[in-house]
Design a protein around this nucleic acid. Structure first.
Ligand SMILES: [Mn+2]
Ligand SMILES: [Mn+2]
Ligand SMILES: [Mn+2]
Ligand SMILES: [Mn+2]
Lengths: 158, 158
DNA sequence: CAATATTGTTAGCCAAGGCTAAACTGTTTG
DNA sequence: CAAACAGTTTAGCCTTGGCTAACAATATTG
C-alpha cells in the first residue's frame, strides 16, 4: 500500500535532506531491526557462556548474572529458554555447557563481535567506548558490512 | 562482586583470544544496550513522524503502520504512549504533530541516523544494505564514535 | 446524500525480559 | 556433622511491543 495524501507536494515545505525511501524498503529496515532484537539477547548469553567456558572452564548462573548486571532469577529463567532452544545443557545446581548448536552460535557471535570491536578501535575509538558500542552494534551489522569492516581493520594494521 | 571458581587458571584451556573484561566494565556494556533498547522504538517513531511532516506535510497513523510494517492497532497504542511522554500532540482522526520536545528528539535522531548512513556508504556499503544496518546501529553508537564517523565521511568526500 | 471504503480506536490476547521474595540445594567451615 | 553461606530455582508481579477482531469515525464516490 502507498501513503495517503496524494497531493502532498502542494503542502510540503522545502525539500529537507534525503527523500523518504519507498514504503517497502522502509518497512524492510524496521522489520530487520525487530528481527535482530528477537535473537540478540540469546546470542549474547550464548556468547558469554562460551567465553566463560573458554576462559574459566565453567559457566555458572551467578557469574552470568554478575557480568550482565541482572538478577539471578532473570538468568535462571533465561537458561530454561536456552535449554528449550537446545543451545545449552544444564543439570540443576551445576555449570552450563553448550550443545553443538550452541557452540556454533557462540563462535559466530564471538567472531562477529570481535570484527566490530577491532574495527571501531581501528577507526580510532577509545577501547572502553568501542566495547560498549560493539556490544549493541554487533547485532545490526550485515554480513556485507562485516566483510568491509574486516578488510578495513586489516589494512589499517598492515 | 567477582567471579566464582578462583583457581580457574588451573582448569582453563589455552588462552583463547582476548581475556574477559573486568566484571564492572562488562556489566556496563550490557546495561548500556538495555538502556538503548528502552528508547530506541520511541526515537524511531518520533523520527519517522518528523520525516513524514517534513516530506508530506502530515503524519497519519496509517502511514506509520505501512512504513513500519506493523498493525494500525500497534501504532494507535504507541501514539498514546508518545502523547503521555508529551512528544506528540494528536486529535482523534487528525494528523499527528510534534511538541517542542518531540521536534528536538526528531532532529537529534535524524542527524545521528544520517551520520551513520553516510558513514556506511562512505565505507563502501551498498545503499540498501547501509539503510538497513543504519536503522539498527544508530541507537548503539556513542557520541564519540559518531564524531569519528562524521569526520571519516567528510574526509572521504573531499 | 447514502453507501462504501478508508482510517482510527478499543478490547483482549500473548511472549519476552525485567524485578523481588521465598524456598531449596550444595558447599564450606567451626 | 551441624550451621551458615553461597548459589539456584520458583512463584508471582510488571512493562513493552506485538497481534486480531470488532467497532467507530471520517472521506470518497455512485
Ligand atoms: Mn556480543
Ligand atoms: Mn551484544
Ligand atoms: Mn538493538
Ligand atoms: Mn532506528
Amino acid at each position: 500500500m502507498t501513503d495517503s495524501n496524494p497531493n502532498a507536494s502542494l503542502t510540503a515545505p522545502s525539500i529537507p535532506g534525503d527523500a523518504l525511501p519507498p514504503v517497502e524498503q522502509h518497512a524492510q529496515q524496521y522489520a530487520t531491526v525487530r528481527n535482530a532484537h528477537e535473537t540478540e539477547l540469546i546470542e549474547d548469553y550464548v556468547e558469554l557462556i562460551g567465553d566463560l567456558l573458554a576462559h574459566r572452564g565453567e559457566a555458572r548462573a551467578a557469574d552470568i548474572a554478575n557480568r550482565m548486571a541482572v538478577s539471578q532469577a532473570t538468568v535462571s529463567k533465561m537458561i530454561r529458554r536456552l535449554n528449550e532452544l537446545e543451545l545449552v545443557t544444564s543439570k540443576p545446581y551445576r555449570s552450563l555447557f553448550l550443545t553443538e548448536a550452541g557452540q556454533k552460535m557462540a563462535e559466530t557471535s564471538r567472531a562477529r563481535h570481535d570484527i566490530v570491536l577491532h574495527f571501531l578501535r581501528a577507526l580510532g575509538v577509545r577501547d572502553a567506548t568501542a566495547r560498549i558500542d560493539a556490544e549493541g552494534m554487533e547485532h545490526h551489522v550485515s554480513d556485507e558490512t562485516l566483510a568491509i569492516m574486516q578488510r578495513f581493520t586489516e589494512q589499517r594494521q598492515n
